[in-house]
């Protein structure tokens, strides 16, 4: 069974072609000389130059980055706390409600989340801007983080923590010295997930951003509504490039770590 049958080869090839050809086309046409996005007019990088001179795009990119860093960091802290409470908190009043509130935002349509948060912000008279987007993104991203972290916490061998406590650690020390290093990969991938969710989000940001703050997706969306433009292709190419480098690096690093961990475990067993 270790060789691919022709059927599987064909379906994999077609599947991956379907996944990647649109992106490849997008990237190729970002280097198009012509203003018409669908007609090839020769190679040129001029759209990248124009993009870099477009103040409003740069500003939107800066706002987006700020929001993403702030909200993903907050979401990681809150989400890790929530995961810890869910897995280790035992019974407490309103536990069902709590876990419901963790899972509900994952399936909630973005239009509803956005609308409800906007109505809240207006109701309490909070000025809309960077801060309100950060609050909104933190709220839905913390739920994703807590799902990722709690799945790691569940498989975690609790006796390690107990051993640390027996050996004289305080609860906080045990968490910092034993639990945190073990769940660290999950916490980091939770942060990355929160970060990309925030970078990506159009709908919730559109509702919660005031006129003073525009994020990159909002900017792209309003440009794209008018039709295809080579500048957006250039911008997309840059974003795809950053993500690809990020994801590939992250997966290589975790792979190396796993190899090292396995080696350490084997050494420990031998000695």
């Amino acid at each position: 069974m270790n060789r691919l049958s022709w059927f599987n080869t064909v379906s994999l090839t077609l599947g991956f072609a379907f996944l990647y050809i649109p992106m490849v086309i997008l990237i190729i046409f970002s280097f198009n000389e012509s203003k018409l996005v669908t007609v090839w007019g020769g190679f040129s990088a001029k759209w990248y130059g124009e993009l870099l001179q477009n103040e409003s795009f740069l500003q939107a990119a800066w706002v987006t980055l700020k929001v993403a860093v702030l909200s993903s960091t907050l979401a990681t802290v809150l989400g890790t706390m929530a995961a810890y409470v869910l897995v280790r908190g035992g019974r407490f009043l309103g536990r069902t409600l709590f876990s419901g509130m963790i899972y509900a935002p994952l399936v909630m349509p973005e239009v509803i989340t956005g609308l409800s948060l906007l109505l809240l912000f207006i109701g309490i008279g909070l000025d809309r801007g960077v801060m309100t987007i950060v609050l909104a993104h933190t709220t839905f991203a913390m739920c994703y983080v807590s799902v990722v972290v709690s799945s790691r916490l569940i498989t975690f061998d609790r006796s390690l923590e107990e051993a640390a406590l027996d050996l004289g650690c305080s609860q906080a020390e045990a968490f910092r010295l034993v639990t945190l290093p073990i769940i660290a990969p999950a916490v980091i991938s939770g942060w990355l997930l929160a970060f990309t969710l925030s970078l990506d989000d159009l709908v919730i940001a559109s509702f919660t951003a005031g006129p003073s703050a525009t994020t990159l997706p909002i900017k792209i969306f309003s440009a794209v509504r008018l039709g295809v433009s080579p500048e957006i292709n250039a911008l997309s190419t840059i974003m795809i490039g950053i993500v690809t480098v990020g994801v590939v690096t992250a997966s290589l690093v975790t792979k190396r770590q796993m190899v090292r961990q396995r080696r350490d475990e084997q050494n420990a067993e031998r000695s």
């Binding site: 992106m23 997008l26 159009l202 792209i220 794209v224 974003m239 993500v243 990020g246």
Partner: peptide, 10 residues
Amino acid sequence: WTSFLIRVYA
């Protein structure tokens, strides 16, 4: 991992 918006735009 790449932007949803970009994938639709493509």
